[in-house]
Amino acid sequence: HITLTNLITEETTHVVMKTDAEFVCERTLKYFLGIAGGKWVVSYFWVTQSIKERKMLNEHDFEVRGDVVNGRNHQGPKRARESQDRKIFRGLEICCYGPFTNMPTDQLEWMVQLCGASVVKELSSFTLGTGVHPIVVVQPDAWTEDNGFHAIGQMCEAPVVTREWVLDSVALYQCQELDTYLIPQIPHSHY
């Protein structure tokens, strides 16, 4: 019994991606959610070859190996599938703050939850000092008015990073160091 759908849910078992011959794909929301959820992320060749051979072929032979941004053979989907007991964002409290493009905020929040993070909706909701690490995620190029994202640091004691930190961490299924993704914050004294 196979159901085809464009939506990823808890029940989804396989995410089928358009890939090149070496099982490398573009980074899409579907790709990120498939990895975050520990699903099989496979090339569409799995479907076409299975139909051709009239049997369901082994997914291992068709698993996506990499993507056009993070590298052609990083094995993120395999790492995620085999590490669902070791979520990459466990112990983190993440607030997805401000506008985002090409990806609804609720989907970004679901993605970080699938990776083990707790989501907070407001900067004031962080449970500071409880052994949980707060992180604010923003997408600077989605902000149309002044660079308000440079002043988020005044509203909460949390590192502010770009959305790329989430996307790179999920694609590779390895929590990336914050340093290269940090957004400089204007210190309090400048006000």
Rank of each mutant, 00 (worst) to 15 (best):
I2L: 12
I2D: 02
I2E: 01
T3L: 12
L4V: 06
T5R: 13
N6S: 15
N6R: 11
N6P: 08
L7S: 05
I8P: 12
I8F: 08
E10G: 09
E10D: 03
E11M: 08
E11G: 08
E11W: 11
T12S: 07
T13L: 01
H14L: 05
V15F: 03
V15L: 13
V16P: 03
V16T: 03
M17P: 02
M17G: 00
K18T: 03
K18D: 04
K18F: 07
K18M: 10
T19Y: 00
D20E: 03
A21K: 10
A21L: 10
A21R: 07
A21V: 04
E22A: 12
F23P: 02
F23Y: 07
F23I: 08
F23V: 04
V24C: 15
C25N: 01
C25S: 13
R27P: 02
L29S: 06
L29A: 12
Y31A: 00
F32T: 04
F32M: 02
F32R: 00
G34P: 00
G34D: 02
G34I: 01
G37I: 06
G38L: 08
K39L: 01
K39W: 06
W40G: 01
Y44R: 03
F45K: 07
V47H: 00
Q49L: 13
I51W: 09
I51N: 10
E53S: 10
K55A: 10
K55R: 03
K55S: 12
K55N: 09
M56T: 05
M56C: 08
M56P: 06
L57I: 02
L57G: 09
E59L: 05
E59P: 09
D61G: 09
D61I: 02
D61R: 07
F62S: 01
F62L: 02
F62P: 00
F62V: 03
F62T: 01
E63T: 10
V64Y: 01
V64T: 03
R65V: 08
R65D: 05
G66I: 00
D67M: 02
V68N: 04
V68Q: 06
V69R: 12
V69E: 04
V69P: 01
V69L: 09
N70P: 00
N70G: 13
N70M: 13
G71D: 01
G71R: 04
R72A: 11
R72T: 03
R72L: 10
H74D: 06
Q75H: 05
Q75D: 05
Q75C: 15
G76T: 09
K78L: 14
R79P: 01
R79A: 09
A80H: 04
A80C: 13
E82L: 11
E82N: 08
S83T: 09
S83I: 04
S83N: 02
Q84A: 10
Q84I: 08
D85C: 11
D85A: 11
D85T: 10
R86L: 15
R86P: 14
K87M: 08
I88F: 09
F89N: 00
R90V: 07
R90Q: 04
G91C: 14
E93R: 04
E93Q: 06
I94R: 01
I94V: 05
C95R: 04
C95T: 09
C96V: 06
C96P: 00
Y97G: 11
G98T: 03
G98K: 03
P99T: 09
P99H: 03
P99L: 11
P99A: 08
P99S: 12
F100L: 10
F100S: 08
F100M: 15
T101P: 08
T101N: 09
N102S: 07
N102M: 14
N102R: 14
M103L: 08
P104L: 13
P104Q: 14
P104H: 15
T105A: 14
Q107R: 14
L108P: 00
L108T: 07
E109A: 09
W110E: 11
M111R: 03
Q113P: 01
Q113G: 05
L114R: 07
G116E: 13
G116W: 06
A117H: 01
A117P: 03
A117Y: 05
S118Y: 03
V119T: 05
V120E: 00
V120G: 04
K121R: 10
K121P: 05
K121M: 11
E122A: 05
L123N: 12
S125A: 15
F126M: 14
T127M: 11
G129W: 14
G131V: 05
P134A: 04
P134H: 15
I135T: 05
I135L: 02
V136S: 01
V136T: 11
V138L: 07
Q139G: 01
Q139M: 03
D141I: 08
D141E: 15
A142T: 15
E145W: 14
E145T: 08
G148W: 14
G148V: 06
G148R: 09
G148A: 07
F149S: 14
A151P: 10
A151S: 12
A151G: 14
I152N: 07
G153P: 11
Q154P: 08
C156G: 06
C156W: 07
C156F: 12
E157T: 15
E157V: 14
E157G: 05
A158P: 05
A158T: 05
P159T: 03
V160R: 12
V160W: 01
V161W: 02
V161R: 04
V161L: 07
T162K: 04
T162A: 05
E164G: 13
E164Y: 07
E164D: 09
E164V: 08
W165A: 02
W165T: 03
V166Q: 02
V166L: 13
L167A: 04
L167M: 13
L167R: 03
D168V: 06
S169R: 02
V170E: 03
Y173K: 04
Y173S: 04
Q174L: 04
Q176D: 02
Q176E: 13
Q176G: 03
Q176T: 03
E177V: 08
D179G: 11
Y181Q: 02
L182F: 10
L182K: 15
Q185M: 09
I186A: 12
I186R: 15
I186N: 04
P187M: 08
P187E: 03
P187Q: 11
H188L: 06
H188R: 09
H190F: 04
H190G: 12
Y191G: 09
Y191M: 13
Y191S: 07
